[in-house]
Each structure stands twice: as C-alpha cells, then as structure tokens.
C-alpha cells in the first residue's frame, strides 16, 4: 500500500503543555482511517498541524511522498489535502450552490478570475448542482445555508471539501450532532462517489468509526497509543483501558 500521508515524530507544544508528542502513522491511498481518543487527546491539533493551520515544533509530514513542512494551508490544498472543521464552517449568507461553487472555482483555477468570470462561474454552478443532486439535496440548491438544518449544513460542508477532489480529506467530527441515519448517509456519500479520496476521520461515535474505517488510530494525551484494523484495536489492552473501556466497547 502506498502512503498518501506520512507523519513522523510530529510534536506540538503550547507553552509547557505538549499537545502532540512523537506522533507517527500513515494513511494509505484510498484508505479510510479513523482517529479516535478522549477529549484533549490532540486530534484537532493534529488536524491543524497536518493542514498547515498550526506549525509543528518537530517532526515531518509528507503528502504523496513529498514534504509539505512549512507550506501555507492554501499550498497544501493545491497538493490535494482538504479538511472540514469541528463545527460546519460554511458561508451562512450564501446559497448551498454558491457555497460549493466557491470550492469548485478554486479547484478549477478560476477562484480569482475577473475577466471571463461569467463562464467559469456558470460551469462551477453546474458542478455544484450536480454534487448537491448526488447527495439528495438538489431541491436545496438555492437555499442560503443559514436556513438549512444542521445535518444539511454538515453535508454541504463535506461537499465543499469533496469539490476540491482531494487525494486526502480530513474530517473533524463530521457526524457530530447528526442522527445515525444522517451520519450513515454522509459517510455513504463520501465513500460511494469519491472512492479515490483517502479519508482521515475523527469521530466520537465508536460505531461510526468501527463501521466505516479500514484502520483505526487511537490517541491519548497527544500520543498514539494504538493502531490497527477495527478488530485489532478493539482487542488492544491499552486502548481498552484508555478509551474503549469507558464506553463498554
């Protein structure tokens, strides 16, 4: 398996507090990896470090075999790395179509276009409507995001990232606040239509992670304490003590 993401010895401190310590694992191409751990384990900090929103104090990160250390978030996106945020980070005043079209235009290299912008805009709008249609939200295309339900906003949020056709998509608790049916629908959209995209997924719902992921990485207090297939992780004694034990998993 070729790795799309390779983390080696990644560390991040905030003052005296070590948020990440010697984090190392890989995500393979087209693989779905779950990242679990109790609150404060460093999952979101790790996402911020991988995507360039935070600068790590040590370690190296490679995307598709190339170092992305020191790159700005936008440069990492251009290399195929996309993410979502813990809360749906959308443009509330814009319609669902326009939210997704914003991503499509950037991906097509038309994001900053002025001259000839009308053609680029209508092409992007078309793709946005198709993506919404695939997700069963075609009827909501013209609705501003602020008027949509939490679940719908989550789906539009994920579609925005998918519109970038990323090689690796980092999803930070995409299913938080969703019903089980909505969660399954969201993950179904991700896997069904975008099989070439590798996913690194943070979720608190163990059933979601174990049900949808090829591999699971477990973190506690900034360290990786275990990784493997869902079955292996379930049996790992340290993981059970740190995390699963408390949920009865």
């Amino acid at each position: 398996m070729t790795a799309i993401l390779e983390l080696r010895g990644v560390g991040k401190r905030f003052g005296a507090f070590s948020a990440l310590r010697d984090v190392a694992f890989d995500v393979g191409e087209r693989e779905t990896v779950g990242l679990i751990g109790p609150n404060g384990a460093g999952k979101t900090t790790l996402f911020n470090v991988i995507t360039g929103f935070l600068r790590p104090d040590e370690g190296s990160i490679r995307l598709a075999g190339q170092s992305i250390d020191g790159m700005a978030p936008a440069q990492r996106v251009a290399r195929g790395l996309a993410r979502t945020f813990q809360t749906a980070m959308v443009f509330p005043g814009l319609t669902a179509r326009e939210n997704i079209a914003m991503a499509v235009r950037q991906h097509a290299g038309d994001g900053l276009r002025w001259f000839g912008g009308a053609r680029a805009a209508s092409a992007a709008a078309e793709i946005a409507v198709r993506l919404l249609g695939d997700a069963g939200l075609a009827h909501r295309a013209e609705t501003p995001l602020r008027d949509m339900s939490h679940g719908e906003r989550r789906i539009v949020d994920a579609l925005m990232s998918l519109a970038l056709s990323p090689r690796l998509l980092l999803l930070d608790e995409p299913t938080a606040g969703l019903t089980r049916a909505e969660s399954d629908r969201l993950l179904g959209i991700l896997r069904r239509n975008h099989a070439d995209t590798a996913l690194l997924l943070v979720a608190h719902d163990i059933d979601i992670v174990f049900g949808h992921c090829d591999r699971v990485v477990v973190m506690e207090l900034g360290r990786v304490i275990g990784s493997g297939t869902p079955a292996e992780v379930r049996e790992d004694a340290e993981v059970r003590r740190a995390y699963l034990g408390s949920t009865g998993g």
């Binding site: 996106v77 991503a103 900053l112 912008g117 680029a120 925005m160």
Partner: peptide
C-alpha cells in the same frame, strides 16, 4: 459579480474556510 468578487465575500464571511478551500 465575478469569481474574485465572490471570493472577496467569502473572505469576509468565513476567512478560515476560504484558506481551507485553498484561497490565499
């Protein structure tokens, strides 16, 4: 009205999201 203008609105509404979409 052009993509650049829409992007400008995006930077006003949710700058972090714009960066995550690859916009500078």
């Amino acid at each position: 009205a052009a993509p650049i203008g829409r992007a400008l609105v995006g930077t006003r509404e949710e700058p972090i999201r714009m960066a995550a979409l690859g916009y500078s």
